[in-house]
Write a protein that binds this DNA or RNA. Structure first.
Lengths: 173, 173
DNA sequence: TGCAACCGGTTGCAAAATGCAAGTGGTATG
DNA sequence: CATACCACTTGCATTTTGCAACCGGTTGCA
């Protein structure tokens, strides 16, 4: 499938238009997965290792990810987002918002999309700044209060706590 | 591929995560293609008829498109977006903006993405209102000046005119 | 009235992408 | 020294895609 057209949407789809690529980016962004093994085993969907290896290769050749050796462990590689990769966040945010609104999303997994949607454009740019600090080594812009990552994480944990509490309540009933 | 997870991004990708679905939506939204034949022949990428038929079927079963008979022509169907389909616009807009910034987009085909990006959130909601009028029959909200469709279209035509002018100039040289 | 062009698809088949399980060579850990 | 972990690769069956030809029906026109 080469060079179908130079339309921006088409070119974007030729890079990220499959079922796995954006899930990998999602796990890197929202789950801070940085190693092959983490991406392979700690995701909800169960990608297979050949597909993961192939997509990581493509993402590196597209300059969306880079890979360095982990100094603490000779075999481990650390994958990092480039600026181009970080710039995918708005697409993920819109997809999350759409899915949250129109598809049968579970409460625990939907809460991040909800928080990010309600946080508006400011939360997106703050989050992208945090990702730059984490992946590109730029110095973190000091903010008061919890970071976006922390807010997303605690929203997720609250939802999980509510869920297990409810399921215990259901069992008692 | 059933039920990988109930994450909003994953569920969204299960619906629109392939190389053709969003191109069809793009042609309906930005090119006002409403018939099978139009979608088949008037797009830049050349989808094949079996894939188009399959995707239209899926999009209808997902409640993103509806189909009615064209009263002027017994065989023609008219495809219309639902509210859920119109709500895909922000995803397309973000993909367009990302592709425009990071990929080798042609001037003529990129100008729509550029205009839509620079128009900000207001242009998006205005455009979605226009789409509701066109596809759902809601009454058009009266605005002064050109509609978003018209602005996008004339930006495209200007870019095309510049292009042919330049290519004539190049031939003369 | 006859005929060509157009309508929305379907069918058959080859090629490519995906999914799964097992395997590889090397490294850290107790 | 054994076991577990590391990032992948390989082989093979299944699924999806891409291409071209074809289908019965409709429309416009001479």
């Amino acid at each position: 499938m080469n060079e179908r057209s130079d339309c921006p949407i088409n070119l974007t789809l030729e890079v990220i238009g499959d079922k796995w690529t954006l899930l990998i980016i999602r796990d890197i962004i929202f789950g801070d997965r940085r190693h092959f093994r983490e991406l392979l085993t700690k995701s909800n969907e169960g990608i297979s290792s050949n597909i993961l290896a192939d997509r990581l290769k493509t993402l590196m050749s597209e300059d969306i990810l880079t890979r360095e050796d982990d100094p603490t462990h000779k075999q481990k590689g650390i994958y990092s987002l480039t600026e181009k990769g970080i710039a995918l966040l708005p697409i993920l945010a819109e997809m999350g918002a759409w899915g949250y609104k129109y598809l049968p999303v579970s409460e625990e997994l939907g809460v991040r999309a909800q928080v990010l949607r309600d946080g508006g454009p400011k939360m997106r740019t703050d989050f992208m700044d945090e990702l730059r600090a984490r992946h590109l080594g730029t110095k973190p812009r000091r903010t008061r209060g919890a970071s976006v990552s922390e807010r997303l994480q605690s929203a997720y944990e609250d939802a999980m706590a509510r869920k297990t509490k409810n399921s215990r309540a259901a069992k008692r009933a």
